[in-house]
Design a protein around this nucleic acid. Structure first.
Lengths: 292, 292
DNA sequence: AGTTTTTCATAACTACTGGTTATCATAATC
DNA sequence: GATTATGATAACCAGTAGTTATGAAAAACT
């Protein structure tokens, strides 16, 4: 009778040790593992005690693996790799058309939701879950199949595809746009920035150097989504990125006031964890009209 | 860059699941794993959530694996087996002459220590560690290479070899033995039983049906080891098992009063965890004169 | 040679995980 | 229909698995 629980050390300890072995460094292993160096040190020590053998020779700031350490690290790595492959394969065969996406609130509402709705109205649509948050940390913690990331470049540990560049421009309902002679006399719909990355009317004025915007009447509606909703209702001028608002513009609910465009150097990307995009997820992304 | 911590579920959860899959039963898996059924149920549930897929179909008192469950169980089993083999191999190549033994206090002192000492006085002796406890649970928890077990039969999950049967008989120093006409007039050295398995003078009297022993003067010295030490000093008569006390008897420090022998049906075994005796440990046991 | 930096070990601390018991639900068995 | 066997889950809490702070040791720098 196999009794692995008794015969094997705590397996996550092996996983920690394998990382130390690969990096030849406790501190870097800790970074990969997202724990403190002390936690890694402790676990490897306990593993050595469990096994009754030294795995790592420590000397001041240097470390080397013992012969046993080398053997165990290689074998652990093999087992972990095997399990990883197996789980990836399992995900590929089992996802059977299920797509989880994440993005910030505006992109979710104005860019993703229309796409998802179009897709879901079609035939044989797989279930799609969409999670919205204006905090990157939330999005990253989610482990969605893919997420729409807004920033300068794709973060480390992720890979993906550029969707479009960020270009800020005043946005209004078509009727409002026709009646607006000058931004100076208009009501500019403003919002509270949740991260420094965002561009509000104050930023836009400063970066564009346009004194009309400085002088115009600005009303703070709190959330960015509110400014867009209010602009659609024809009650003011919001700031927006025409690519994000593609559906609203196509539908004729919003137009860009094309005299004013501000490029920030930031873009929108669809990203996934490095190596964790299954063929099936790739296919589903295409079906939801998210280009890779 | 591999980051197994992020990409793999808690590995001990896989180990639990593999046991469930093998047994097709949460309760029996829990027994193997030495935890409650509830703990197993919980872990498998969390694993399913982590993976986002059902592994086990539950219906009342029945359970079956899903397709995914079967695949994962097979692969997990393979990985665990691989790791187990690797660790066994590592132990074989790394033990390099180191033997750890465990036994209860009396056997350690009177049976094992003399043997170990003889061995250590020889050439090229490997280090030997000996741990003594009168509590079986302590001995089992220790994971020594081998232990001397006292009981009716080899416990489940262990294998080993019979050393000798338990036979209780009065034991005294040779001079004391010559002067003792009858147990009734002797001082009987008694002790506190730590487990029901032990036989003290009260038990011996009852089981042998000898009224002399009932009537004799009994002095309680507390520990069994003390009774033997005191008997060696010629200050009374202890109870003992001649095979355990082989060295003392050979050395002429103790003799058995051979008129009184009580067989209990219990024996002494050398045991190790099933499948965990390396060839090297086997060899070392022989060198320490522990017959297999 | 002395100083600074980097890295690992460990003590003290504590949040939360990983277990427990008790109880209920469900299916099988009688 | 009653009983039994088995899995799920709530409530609970001991101890594990992490943290921060600090000291030791070696490498790197001046």
């Amino acid at each position: 009778m196999k009794n692995y629980r008794r015969a094997l050390p705590p397996l996550d300890y092996l996983l920690f040790f394998e990382a130390v072995a690969r990096h030849q460094n406790f501190t870097r292993a800790a970074e990969e593992l997202n724990v403190s160096q002390a936690a890694v040190s402790k676990r490897v020590k306990v593993l050595e005690e469990w096994l009754g053998m030294t795995l790592v020779n420590r000397s001041g700031r240097n470390l080397s693996l013992t012969r046993n350490g080398q053997v165990l690290a290689a074998n652990s790595g093999e087992a972990l790799d095997f399990l990883h492959s197996c789980l990836q394969q399992l995900r590929r065969t089992s996802s059977s058309g299920r797509l989880s996406l994440a993005a910030n609130v505006a992109v979710s509402q104005f860019w993703l939701t229309p796409r998802i709705n179009e897709y879901l109205l079609g035939q044989d649509a797989a279930p799609v879950t969409l999670t919205s948050s204006d905090k990157d940390a939330d999005l990253f913690a989610l482990e969605a199949d893919a997420l729409i990331y807004y920033g300068k470049e794709i973060p480390d540990g992720w890979e993906g595809s550029l969707l479009f560049e960020e270009i800020w421009t005043p946005i209004a309902a078509p009727e409002m746009a026709r009646q607006t002679a000058s931004l100076e006399t208009a009501t500019l719909l403003d919002f509270d920035k949740l991260t420094p990355k965002w561009v509000n009317w104050g930023d836009f004025a400063a970066l564009s150097g346009d004194p009309q915007i400085e002088r115009a009447n600005k009303v703070n509606l709190g959330s960015y989504g509110s400014t867009l909703d209010t602009a659609i209702r024809g009650r003011g001028i919001a700031l927006g990125c025409p690519d994000v608002l593609h559906f609203e513009i196509e539908a004729g609910r919003l137009v860009a006031l094309s005299d004013y465009q501000l490029k920030t150097g930031r873009s929108y990307f669809v990203i996934w964890r490095t190596g964790l995009l299954s063929e099936q997820t790739r296919s589903l992304l295409s079906e939801v009209a998210i280009p890779l």
